[in-house]
Simulated assay, not measured.
Amino acid sequence: MDISTTSGGDQLGFNSRAIHAGQEPDPLTGSVIVPIYQTSTFKQDGVGGLRGGYEYSRSGNPTRTALEECLAALEGGARGLAFASGLAAEDILLRTLCAPGDHLLLPDDAYGGTYRLISRVLTRWGLEFSTVAMHDSAAVAAAVRPNTRVIWVETPTNPLLNIVDIAALAEISRQHQAMLVVDNTFASSYLQQPLALGADVVVHSTTKYLGGHSDVVGGAVVTRDAEIGEQVAFHQNAVGAVSGPFDDWLVLRGIKTLGVRMDRHCSNAEQIVRFLGEHPAVSSVLYPGLPNHPNHDVAARQMAGFGGMVSFRMRAGEEAALKVCGLTQLFTLGESLGGVESLIEHPGRMTHASVAGSPLEVPGDLIRLSVGIENIEDLLADLNAALA
């Protein structure tokens, strides 16, 4: 049973849903925490007599069910599905929503892994795609084709931190009978609710803020429509792109503290943004919380906070950026994001190397920070030393 409302029918607050939705105490033992059902198969009470609907863990597992119910409750969706990785979730979703010959609109600053999946894997299957500046709603409307099936959105984008007006693109997608999919990884469901703004589907890399501790790889899809959710579930089971029960348990554990962690991520990021904005070695800071960000007003309207991701450009160019990435001590040089520890990376050489030489290539002087929840004084001191 999914706990997401009070006895009076009102929706529980976000943190209450994060801790309780899909996670009632175990009926057999009373365990407060959902058990890890580390099993591949389940005893049947006669042929076709399934206990609780479970037969084989690829098709369903109680630990995964708890996570999927929690994900749906956090995003306000009809169906949540947990995957082995964020890219596995994207692959199954696109193969469910699209057919060979369909067209997809992709951001012109999309995550490198998403671009690689679409441009080098799904195009061989027959999917067509083109890129557009998603933060320009008029440009998106002009780029829609008769065979456009999906408008794919990241907001904030990775790593340029552009902001997309979800409600405006939802209207465009409805006008053209297309599906609006929003990658909500950077904001998390705590800061942004795409389905409430009109999106049809939300995707996550649960590796990031939802897991929150850099110890699990996973992905998620949450659908507004239950029927689409069933279609995605069919393809997921047919292909086998499911998450394991221990990984599900780790993501559930992380979700319980998502709200309090995001508050600290945002607070630390805002102070780092102020520091970088005044540093002579930095030419520009990319952060949606800045009043001079081109889509700051949209971010303020559709987000509950501006997030823990910060990008900035070095005045002295790429070599200076590479040097800074190698000098920090508390900011660990590494890919990924959203963990409690702070990370620093050079997108052009690391997470976005797959888009080098393409229209999505990122500037060489760009550095991306995933701001953790350490003491802010220590983070500032570390950056100051590296930039000196």
Rank of each mutant, 00 (worst) to 15 (best):
S130I: 09
A133V: 11
M134I: 03
S137H: 11
A138F: 04
A138C: 05
A138W: 01
A138R: 14
A139W: 08
A141D: 11
A142M: 06
A142K: 13
A143F: 02
N147P: 00
I151A: 01
V153W: 02
V153Y: 01
T157P: 02
P159K: 12
L160T: 13
L160Y: 05
L160E: 11
L160F: 03
L161F: 05
L161E: 12
N162A: 13
N162Q: 14
V164Q: 07
D165I: 05
I166T: 14
I166Q: 04
A168C: 10
A168D: 07
A168V: 08
L169R: 07
A170H: 07
A170Y: 05
A170Q: 10
I172L: 00
I172R: 01
I172Q: 07
S173Y: 04
R174K: 13
Q175Y: 00
A178P: 02
A178H: 05
M179F: 13
L180K: 10
V181G: 05
T185S: 12
T185E: 01
S188I: 12
S188A: 11
Y190Q: 15
Y190D: 11
L191I: 11
L191F: 09
Q192D: 09
Q192M: 15
Q193A: 13
Q193S: 13
P194W: 10
L195P: 04
L195F: 10
L195V: 12
L197M: 15
G198I: 12
A199G: 13
A199M: 06
A199H: 12
V202N: 01
T207K: 14
L210Y: 04
L210N: 10
G212Y: 12
H213D: 10
H213K: 15
D215N: 15
V216A: 09
V217E: 03
G218T: 09
G219N: 05
T223M: 00
T223C: 06
R224C: 00
R224M: 04
A226R: 11
E227H: 09
I228K: 03
Q231C: 06
V232T: 05
V232L: 00
V232H: 03
A233D: 09
